[in-house]
Amino acid sequence: MNFFKKKTIIYSPGNGLIKSIDKVHDELFSTKALGDGFVLEPNESSIFAPVEGTITSIFPTKHAISIKTASNLEVLIHIGIDTVELDGKGFNLKVKEGTKVTKETEIVEVDFPFLESNGKDTDVIVIFTNLKEKPLAITEGLMKVNQEIGTIK
């Protein structure tokens, strides 16, 4: 019985346009092969944690960061498309593995103009990799950082 199971609140990881994951220009993400989620089309460089939890891994190229919530939800923040090819350039990490994060925690500062000048898409993709049957409902549109945009029960 999970009567007291806490819902997970999802926050906008930055200022910009929140859109459905099926609008990503990469089939791996848009077909939900890695899981359901959403996309932030950012209009500034700071990216914050979209959930409360703990940083569990950071890709060596700094473009992908994983968070695990208290309810064991696994969240992947993937910055840009094909940004792995930049080998960490353009990314200034603000956290490390084991860091506890909240919606106020800046996790990375990204030089989006640098990404664009290297021909990379700048969408910030947030994927819930182990949702299973849990429904995900996200509010799309222009959002401010830390604004609640959805929940997972």
Rank of each mutant, 00 (worst) to 15 (best):
T102R: 05
T54H: 02
D26K: 06
I67Q: 06
I10L: 14
K103I: 08
N43E: 15
K68C: 11
L76M: 10
K120R: 15
I58M: 14
H63K: 08
S66T: 15
G141D: 03
F91H: 07
F112K: 14
N130T: 06
E106R: 12
N130R: 09
G35V: 05
T83R: 03
K153P: 02
G119D: 14
T102E: 14
G35E: 12
D22P: 04
L34A: 07
E109H: 10
T99P: 10
L17K: 11
I55A: 09
P50Y: 02
D22Q: 08
V95T: 10
V24G: 03
V124R: 02
S30N: 11
D87T: 05
F59H: 12
E140D: 06
I149C: 02
M1G: 13
L40D: 06
F3H: 11
L76D: 09
K7S: 11
K89N: 14
F48C: 04
S66F: 09
S57F: 11
K32M: 05
G80E: 12
K132E: 13
D87A: 05
T102Y: 03
E85H: 09
P135N: 15
V39K: 01
T83F: 01
E116P: 08
F4A: 06
E148I: 09
L131Q: 01
N43D: 13
V101H: 08
S46N: 15
A33I: 14
I65D: 09
